[in-house]
Design a protein around this nucleic acid. Sequence first.
DNA 1: TTTATAATATTGGTTAACCAGAATTTTGCG
DNA 2: CGCAAAATTCTGGTTAACCAATATTATAAA
Lengths: 234, 234
Amino acid sequence: MKLEINVKNDNREVQNSIISQIRDLINYKNLEPGDKIPSERMLSDKFGVSRSNVRDAIQKLEFYGILSSIPQSGTFVANIGVTALNGMIDDILRLKEPDFKSLVETRILLELKTARLASLRRTEADLIQMEDALNAYSEKVINGEKAVQEDLLFHLAIAKASGNSTLNTLMLMITPGIITNFEEYHVCSEDLAFNGIQEHRDIFEAIKSKNPGLAKEKVKVHFKALYQYCYSIE
Amino acid sequence: MKLEINVKNDNREVQNSIISQIRDLINYKNLEPGDKIPSERMLSDKFGVSRSNVRDAIQKLEFYGILSSIPQSGTFVANIGVTALNGMIDDILRLKEPDFKSLVETRILLELKTARLASLRRTEADLIQMEDALNAYSEKVINGEKAVQEDLLFHLAIAKASGNSTLNTLMLMITPGIITNFEEYHVCSEDLAFNGIQEHRDIFEAIKSKNPGLAKEKVKVHFKALYQYCYSIE
DNA sequence: TTTATAATATTGGTTAACCAGAATTTTGCG
DNA sequence: CGCAAAATTCTGGTTAACCAATATTATAAA
């Protein structure tokens, strides 16, 4: 286990090193938006790393919109000036693994918004999906079983009903981190699960009745305990 | 250009096909959290695709915390039950490219939060970095130059000062989409740039004086025009 | 039969060779 | 000399062979 972590850290360090070297190269050569950076082979040669390492680093910078690869042609600096480029790369290099508190803080923010938007935009199909998730959750809790998954699916159904694809994506992205930390910190709200049923239903009803204010309020209630717990462990 | 889009779509379709086949396989074999899925070679053989395609699909599912690869050992179903697994994979398969409206909607939400948190948590170093970005922005605008990058860097500096690593990451992730769409929709607020200087300074001063309510209010003012424009093009 | 050890098979990761298409250079005709 | 066409080089992407670490099986000693 220790080994695995080290391996991942090593890879990350290698990748960050390559990224910063690419940044230096762009600055040194005074490359501007749209210019082509050297080929992957030249970079792997110059940096003394494997080409796949270079490809991974480029892929990461592509993800953040800084570079753009065109097959059989080259990799180009995106339509973003050197100032922003340097700033963004510095930020990317300094990105830390998200801590529990920031994850929860962000999740609550997103959930308040998705619930509000869902109450304005939800379709009948959305309602059906949410109610299915809600029923699955209730059933499990009543039978005394763990219902973390069903809990999660209900919230993801809300995100989908929000009609905001970006929020939906962001919710999906932070979810695994939430789950991991929940288990690590033993945030097993089994005793609170019965309350959870009613809280979920309240949120659902608010969304169903197209009442954004009420929906937001009910989400606040639902996350009150988590919110306080999260701020207490700091 | 058309070709490039098609290629990307094709790749995406192949990847989605593999992802759904992996999901089907997990369901068919009744795999549970912690179980090992077949090796990459077996999957590429069974699905009739290249091993690198399988690796890419697995990497994506790893990103969303659904699978976990351990070198020289295998790829395992993460600690998440089949119910949530199926729901999340369905969501991932349906993820759409974010539209402009959802991007702006999300950006404003995040900016309101980061400004508020920054006013509570900003360090002296944060203030220096924000002021540097602010001055660089003002200088450009006064000289009649475009200052999109400097604008951006100011807002990223706020995100960093928020002390919330998750929010910082999310801001970085949606930024390229924002830039792309800004150019596509010609949201060049050059005429509004002079207003922007004062608006930025207002936000900065609110954060500096540790006034979260005021910071939020000033961000609202700053994004008012964008907000209305975004809701008008629908 | 049980257990410790060695041999084998399997795994994800890495490297190098290969591919099709784009960009560049060279060629050859007018 | 000008310019179109052909040959060559160069590109990111793909495939297949290889690697070291792991998991499994076979073996043998107690």
